[in-house]
Structures are given as C-alpha cells and as structure tokens.
Design a protein around this nucleic acid. Structure first.
Lengths: 260, 260
DNA sequence: GTCGGCGATG
DNA sequence: CATCGCCGAC
C-alpha cells in the first residue's frame, strides 16, 4: 500500500501534474492540501477517470484538503467538531483499507508572536486532542500533510537565517513533538536519520536560490504502520519544470495488511 | 517625421515590446493607449533611456494615455476641461515639432444601448467640440488612437457577425464621420482605399480565428498634414509571438516641416 | 519575490 | 474567453 501527501497549491492549476503523478507512482491514497476549491468545483471527474475517488472538504480561494483513494473512504471526518473554529478547511480523515488516514494543512502562522501564530499552536493542540479522543496509537494510522513546521535544524537549508522564525521556532517544534508523543513517528526521519531533503522551497530570503528550502511536509506513523513501512521518499521530479508547485510530494510504501 | 499610435494594454506588461518597437521604427512621436498606470509608476526612465520623453495622464488599473516624443512636448492638455466628466484618463494632446498630436482612447461602449454606449457617443461629441474650440483644420494636426469604431464594413473581417454591434453600429460610425467633417481625413483609408487591414483582433465570436479582427485604431489627419504624408502602415509584426497585445501599432511618415 | 484566485474589461 | 491588475498568502 502506497500513501502520498502533497500540497498542490490549487488542484485546478496543478491537475495535469497530479494526474501525471498518479500515473507515475500509482499510490493507493493521496492526501492533498491547498486544493483551493469548494467541493462542487473539485475536479472529481478527471481524477475518477484516473482511477481515484475523491473525499474533499474545500473552500473558496484558501485552504482545502482532500483524500484521493483507489478504494472507498470510510468514517470520513471533515472538521474537529470540538466547539472551536471549523471555518477553515484544513482537516480531513478517512479509513482506507483499514488504515486511518488523517490529512492536515496546518496554519502557516505568518510570523512568531502574531495572532496567526497563536492560532497555529492552538490548532496543533486541537489536533492532538482529536487523536487522543478518536484514535488509537496501537492501530495503523498515518497523520500526514503540510505541517508548516521544520522539525529540526537539519531539515532547514539555512538554519541560521531561519533561527526562531516561523516554521522553525521552538514552540512550533515542541507542539509537533507533543503530537508525536501521543504515539507517532516521523516516517522520513525514522527511515533516513541523517538524510537531508526538503519538501518546500523558499524565495523570500535574500540570495536564497529557489531550489533550497526545508522539510515541512510530513508522514507521521503509528508504530504498527511504521513496522510495515518499506520505504519513504520525496519526489523531487515534481519540483521541476513549468507549472511546478513549491511543494514536493512525499510517499510511503507499506507491506499489505490485513489489519484486524 | 514619423508618428505612431498603439493601444498597448498596459505599458508595464508591454514595455519590452514597446522598446523593441521604438528601435525598429525610430518614430518621432508615439501615442499610447491603455497604459494602465498612474504617472508616478509610468516607466519613464526606461523609455528615456530609449531616447523618448514621456507625457502622460494615467490612472490605476484602467485607461491611461501617453505621448512619447524625441523632442519636447508643448502646450500639453490632459483632459477636456469642459465641465463634463474628466475622471477617466482617455485624452492627451501636445504639440511636437509644430504638429498638434491628439491621442485618444475612446470608450469601448460595451454594448449598443448601454449606458457605456451613450457615454461613448457623448465622448466623441466632446472631442469634436474640443477640436472646434482649440484647433484649426488648416494647421498640421493628427488625431490618433484607439477609436473603438470600425469606420466601414470593409474594415471588419466578418461584417455580418458584427452588424449593428458595438464598434460597428451606425451611430458610432456617424459620430466618427462628424469628427472627420471638422476637417480630418482617415489616413489609412485615404492612402489605401481598397486595402483591408486590421489593428485589433477578437476572440469572442464563436469560430473567430484569433488573427481576424477589425480596424479600430486610426490616424486622422488635417489636410496640410495629409499633403505631406508619405506612407501609412500597420505593423503586423507586433501581433506575433508571446506577450503580444491584441492591438497592432499604426505608423505614418510625413515629409519634414517647417510649419510656420 | 512568486503564485493563484478573483473581477473588470474588452 | 483572454488578458491584466489587484489582493492575499506564503
């Protein structure tokens, strides 16, 4: 079983590349972020033609997440439903082939100390509570998406330039670690402890070559799933050429279930 | 002396092509329409480097006209100043080397019978009054720009499709003729009575190939100027390739003055 | 800086 | 339906 995550920054602008990606990798599950469409306009027909069902929660212009799957998505959840703000489409979860797939687009946080930053930290806490209440670390689960957090300095091309900046600040890293403490492992780090690879590139920092960046898109796995993980890779192909998004997809391959 | 007119649809988006055009034709005067910038942001430095002074009247997002000239622009006028609406930057006039140059971007008129259409007809009348009051048909004058009127069916690729439509309707053609009645001649028509050539192409009409269109950009000349006119051409080069505007420039060459 | 959605105009 | 400017996010 193959599970992928990709911040596509508009499913409509990226549709051709997404279809090419599906054909190249033949994943079973694809978690998408920043689809930027309401569900009625989501290009479900085109993706169905490529062999995938679409489970979506979108909004106009901003955010939007989706799960593409070859087989049916069960027990779909599209919001925290915890009494907090659910107006931003940043969370979708479904069970596919017995694996719980949670797809997130964590708020960027704009800048450290801002209101958006507080919302980001809060959002990560709500996510942890969701896991605590509705999930089981002893069951196969993948929490994946654009976390907008680089876990450690090794995940950043220029750690000094980003020191204590948003995406790299200690409180964000701590919030991510606390999420993992529930019972998750960073798939990429776990399988490639010393490998440096980025999933997102930056163009703000002065003199930053456009192909340098950081690793902020993650696949976090519960132990039963990690044990079956046969490989995890970042698809650098998708960053090349015209019409590339500024995020690269991440893929994980698992030995087949069955999960009881 | 060479005088050109060109609807550039944003001087910023077209700057590279405008500079190439200046180098290719070496005109003395260039009348530009739809510059779409306020004067403070007009790329005057780049055009000065190409050897031209800029006389501009612009606004944000819409309209905007300018006169580029190798030699100083005198007696500049940037509005009707007739008590009517001058909020749209569609008119600029200046005297260059003794030739009065009036550059206009006539309102499009949206559709026949609309409010915009009434405004267009009214605008053409105000223009006629301006000539009557401030100009002399016995002096060298060129009234040029995007008139948004195809003078006759011969100027339209598919006259039947455009019959009585905006840009081709009788009232507009009549308003243009009345302007000419003051003492102007359609330079292109006068020198090439049977030649079919378009300055603008269309993409609305179903099945319209993108390179078919109509002639709506004009150079109207007073008799003393017409007598010195040595040639008039439509530059089809500027419609080719990436980054082309949907208007082609029109150029006229005149035997040198002096005008007493 | 760079992109994408949006809205107005042609 | 193509284009461009604008805006907001990153």
């Amino acid at each position: 079983m193959k599970v992928a995550t990709w911040n596509v920054n508009s499913i409509r602008a990226r549709l051709e590349r997404v279809v090419a990606f599906l054909e190249r990798h033949d994943p079973d599950v694809v978690c998408l972020q920043e689809t930027k469409v309401v569900d009625e306009v989501f290009p479900a027909d085109e993706l169905r033609a490529a062999g995938y069902q679409c489970t979506t929660i979108g909004q106009k212009t901003y955010n939007g997440v989706a799960i593409l799957s070859k087989t049916p998505a069960e027990d779909v959840v599209r919001a925290f439903d915890d009494g907090g703000d659910d107006s931003q489409a940043r969370l979708i979860a479904a069970t596919i082939e017995g694996v719980r797939c949670v797809c997130v687009y964590v708020p960027n946080g704009r800048s450290v100390g801002s209101e958006a930053y507080a919302y980001k930290l809060e959002w990560l806490e709500r996510l942890k509570k969701l896991l605590e209440q509705d999930a089981d670390p002893e069951r196969p689960l993948v929490l994946t998406g654009d976390f907008n957090v680089a876990p450690a300095d090794i995940d950043v091309h220029d750690p000094e330039a980003w020191r204590d900046q948003v995406l790299c600040s200690d409180p964000e890293r701590k919030a991510l670690r606390e999420l993992e403490d529930w019972g998750l492992v960073d798939g990429f780090r776990s399988l490639h402890p010393d490998l440096v690879a980025y999933t997102w590139w930056d163009y703000r920092q002065l003199g930053f070559p456009k192909n340098r960046g950081m690793r902020i898109d993650h696949l976090l796995l519960t132990r039963p799933l990690l044990e079956r993980c046969e490989g995890i890779e970042i698809d650098r192909e998708e960053r090349k050429g015209k019409g590339a998004s500024d995020h690269a997809p991440v893929l994980a391959t698992f030995a087949p279930g069955p999960w009881k």
